[in-house]
Computed example of a mutant assay.
Amino acid sequence: MNVGFIITKSEVGGAQAWVKNVSGFCENSRRFLISSEHGWLNSFFADERSLTLPSMGKLFFLRDLFRLKKFIRQHNIGLLVASSAHAGVMARLVKLLTPVQVYYVSHGWSFNYNGGLLRFAFRKIEQWLAALTDKIICISGADYQIAQETLKIEQDKLLLIPNKVFQPQASGLEPPLDRRPNSPNLLYLARLEAPKRPDLLNLLNHFSVQIDVIGQGSLATQILPASNIRLCGEVKNFGNFSAYDGLVLLSDSEGLPMSAIEAAACGLPLFLSDVGGCSELVRYQNGMVTPNDAMALQENFSYFLNKLPYFSKQAQHASKYFDLNADRDIWQTLFKNPA
């Protein structure tokens, strides 16, 4: 069966890395990419197997919805795997127009942090869309709990498959290290857009550490100039985790953040915001989570630095629990035999 992976943006990001990794398990099927733009993720798919739908996520998208229907029929796509909120809407609406199975993968329920005053309405829309979905796959226990308790999604539609990765390798494109002598060298790796909180790094600029910020986005301007924080920009296919002593990731919402999983797979201790499924990533005593308020964040960061040798030892032992190869059979079965 041919499988289409649909996601709003094709730029470097956690959900995009998930698509890149998991789509490799379509061993006996042709795989296709549908996104709103041509970007980083397209480099892993043949051009003739890619479709760009510029209106995905916009109000007027009916024309592109019919283009998607045509693409599905033209390439005999039997399964759509949607990995973002807007892509999930389009995938499930096209199911009304043509026979296709749809999996929706939750990388953090967007109505939880984007809803605002409309949160209740967005939740109702998600419940309605769930009725059009064959499987809803949660990559964190926190997302699974929301699906069960808040969205009241039928149990037989839900799957919990915690996010994992293939161990990253250095790409050779990483910036040269500017190590701070006798101080931990930490990494902040993320697309600098909401719900990430790079502004909270300003609360850490008086600690004796070096923090390299790898990533770009509109929130980069919120990071104030500081001698111990270096803005390195985007690095495609970043994999040089072994050059660092730990990972810091501060956010308002997460499923299971890809950069934290990659760091954990490489044996790095983690310092994460206590949101979404982040606490699941440090259950092996390989790091800690923190509230985002200023006092708690600074106190917990100080504790993290003091305990860094212990966390590092535990992180080395825990790295095997984040290996995607352990889930190969699960994904191959899901792609061969959709619900």
Rank of each mutant, 00 (worst) to 15 (best):
H75I: 10
R119V: 02
F25H: 08
Q316F: 04
S171D: 10
N185D: 14
F304T: 03
N205R: 15
D323L: 04
L268A: 06
F311R: 05
S319F: 00
S140Y: 04
S208W: 13
T333Y: 12
L65D: 04
L117T: 13
C266K: 02
F61K: 04
P175T: 12
Y104S: 07
P181N: 03
D245V: 06
P198R: 06
V94Y: 02
E37V: 01
T133C: 11
P195C: 06
V89L: 15
S10I: 02
D178R: 13
K20T: 01
N237E: 05
G88T: 06
L297D: 03
L93T: 03
C232Y: 07
G24Q: 04
F60E: 13
Q216T: 14
R179H: 09
D64K: 03
L247T: 02
L96F: 10
R67H: 11
K164M: 08
A91E: 04
P168V: 06
S29D: 09
T150A: 14
V213Q: 08
L305Y: 14
S140P: 07
P176T: 12
L272N: 12
D293L: 01
K9C: 01
N114W: 06
F120N: 08
S83C: 14
L59M: 15
S55N: 07
F66P: 00
L308Y: 05
L201M: 11
D199A: 15
A46F: 04
L247F: 11
L204Q: 12
G233T: 02
L173N: 04
Y244D: 02
I77L: 10
G276P: 03
K313L: 11
V282D: 05
L224Y: 02
I153D: 09
V105G: 04
S36P: 01
I161T: 07
Y310N: 10
T133V: 09
P99N: 13
V81T: 10
N28K: 13
Y303V: 13
